[in-house]
Design a binder for these strands. Sequence first.
DNA 1: AGTATAATTTGCCATTTGGCAAATGTCAAG
DNA 2: CTTGACATTTGCCAAATGGCAAATTATACT
Lengths: 132, 132
Amino acid sequence: MNNESRKNLGVILKQQRLRMPLTLRELTNLSTVSSSHLGRIERGERFPSASILRKIAKPLGFEEGELFTLAGYLSAQPPGMAESSPVYSSRQLEPYVARVLAEEPVEVQRAVLGLLSILKSIAGNIAKGKSQ
Amino acid sequence: MNNESRKNLGVILKQQRLRMPLTLRELTNLSTVSSSHLGRIERGERFPSASILRKIAKPLGFEEGELFTLAGYLSAQPPGMAESSPVYSSRQLEPYVARVLAEEPVEVQRAVLGLLSILKSIAGNIAKGKSQ
DNA sequence: AGTATAATTTGCCATTTGGCAAATGTCAAG
DNA sequence: CTTGACATTTGCCAAATGGCAAATTATACT
């Protein structure tokens, strides 16, 4: 991350903070990011990590993705069509399965994948005679 | 970033890499991220920064934003126009989950639902103190 | 002016990231 | 079993992040 882009982002963040308007300390309270760090970010001495960006996005009135793009973490987003269907591969997910899973919280959806991979690995071991 | 979510992301990344399939070194060539680092990320010893995530997203077949969401850097993405897809009911099926499951034969997809309902019933009993 | 009070900056340091090179693990061919 | 060609993991270290506390600067009020 070069020095110029640090400064650029810093300037943007500072302008936005002043527009609210907020002091560094107030922004600290809203974001749980230390004011010393915020100050350094604003004058380009530090570059905010993703988690810091996430914490300050809303208090400054940014969309998360917007800030990530400004920081160069995300490539410029084609607005609107954000998540254009990511080709559901060659095979198909059965609509019924999709519908039922969609009712579950995302953690559960992911946990299901975990289960599946565990089962596959066990099955693989059995097949190789290694037993469990 | 707690230890569990590190591991979770690692497992997801590894699964996806093997699905391509790619070796760590090959992924290194596609992403310019050292294989030692990639390895540590996969087994949860390191947590990838935003710039690393960005570098590995496409080679692994992820949308950038998708990976950022999985890593917890971005909150779950507003469905945008994907809402027009009637299949995914009120809640959303996470694209990554959909894609992985879509790779499985339909029987497996359905079996996953079976597993899920069994686990839910067990969990319910535990909650009610009936023990397992 | 002088002084209290709030805001910002600086010094310092623990922690984390990520790369390089060496060590270790894996596996097929001889 | 041994060798060679891979892949993965480990040891080590430089660079960066981010927090706390102290120092400095700005602002307001007598």
